[in-house]
């Protein structure tokens, strides 16, 4: 029983890996297109923003299943107009029937992101990022790794505003995506069986991580295609479906880990200073979880709340002149 309990956090984290939101936060105007901060994957812009809290709940595919509650936050800051950094962490509680509840902080995560392209005419944005999960900064009891993981990734967003007028109804659609590759800084993790005293080594796989969103902007429909005189609340909504997957591609022999992922349908309400998102979490296979989880987030636009102080880039902030869309 002690062995099972000792392994529980690790098993739960692996099983729920596909359910956890990646860092996901930026206030993103590309021409006339606004891409909201998405809850599950990141969006393709750098910005000054705060996501707090992000709350998620889901159940693993174990028998009995482990319920995982996460409460997290992330602060994003522009260093220059095109270079931003974000820092975030979270608190996790794991509850398994018949076992003591485990709780603690997750590892600290930082991301450096650079805006490569922002083409307003084509409603296209592209950025590159490198994220680091700093090993040993969180609680091992909730599965925080003792080693760091580095994830370079590319992020893109494309609005369909350049479709012809006869397809105006489709112009509010946008697609965003994030593709990355995760390298653990330690190739394996050693552990000792407390009952037998035998040591064992488990490989730490490298993962291809990828996710996409399909979204339909009611604000875009109203301001750029047709004003249907809908109630104001509806005109602030962006229905969205997000997906997120992780596939082990190297150093995976003997781990038994396969592709995990979730499909998250939901909606984002967009205001002038903040947005609120709510999504269901549907695992794509048993290894990704059981049942339907939930994900909610409050996201604050710091560049709009504090336009003259912390909402500006640290270097090269434009003073008294127009700044495009940021």
């Amino acid at each position: 029983m002690r062995v099972a309990h000792a392994l529980l956090p690790r098993i739960a984290v692996i099983a729920l890996a596909g359910l956890l939101p990646l860092s996901a936060h930026a206030h993103c105007f590309v021409g006339i297109r606004f891409l909201p901060a998405t809850l599950t994957i990141d969006d393709p812009c750098v910005a000054d923003e705060l996501s707090f809290p992000t709350v998620s709940w889901a159940k693993s595919g174990d028998v009995p299943p482990t319920s995982q509650l996460d409460i997290s936050g992330e602060f994003s800051k522009r260093i220059t107009e095109n270079l931003g950094i974000s820092i975030g962490t979270g608190w996790t509680r794991l509850t398994t029937p018949g076992s003591p509840t485990a709780s603690g902080f997750d590892n600290l995560e930082t991301t450096l992101q650079y805006q490569l392209v922002k083409d307003g005419q084509r409603e296209f944005a592209l950025s590159a990022a490198i994220g680091v999960e700093w090993g040993g900064t969180g609680a091992s009891v909730v599965g925080s790794d003792s080693f760091s993981t580095i994830t370079p990734s590319v992020l893109f967003g494309k609005g369909l505003g350049d479709l012809p007028d006869r397809m105006g109804w489709a112009r509010p659609f946008a697609l965003t995506g994030q593709i990355g590759y995760s390298f653990p800084t330690r190739t394996s993790t050693n552990s000792v069986d407390p009952d037998t005293g035998l040591s064992s080594s488990t490989p730490n796989p490298q993962f291809l991580t990828y996710g996409f969103t399909l979204q339909y902007s009611m604000p875009y429909l109203k301001s750029s295609v047709v004003d249907l005189d809908l109630p104001g609340f509806l005109n602030h909504l962006i229905p969205i479906v997000e997906t997120q997957f992780a596939t082990p591609v190297a150093n995976k022999a003997g781990t038994g880990i396969g592709t995990t992922g979730t499909i998250n349908p939901g909606v984002i309400w967009v205001g002038s200073y903040f947005q609120v998102g709510l999504e269901a979490i549907a695992p794509v296979n048993h290894a990704s979880g059981t049942g339907v989880g939930v994900l909610a987030q409050l996201h604050l636009y710091l560049d709009d709340i504090f336009p003259t102080t912390i909402g500006r880039p640290l270097i090269g902030a434009q003073n008294g002149t127009a700044k495009q869309g940021n």
Binding site: F29, F34, G168, P219, K222, S223, S224, V225, V226, D227, D229, S272, Y273, Y301, D304, I305, F306, P307, G325
Partner: peptide, 16 residues
């Protein structure tokens, strides 16, 4: 604070 100025509505109405 002041935020981005977005089009709220127009007359003639958008798409009308």
């Amino acid at each position: 604070a002041d935020a981005h100025a977005l089009l709220d509505h127009a007359n003639p109405r958008v798409g009308s």
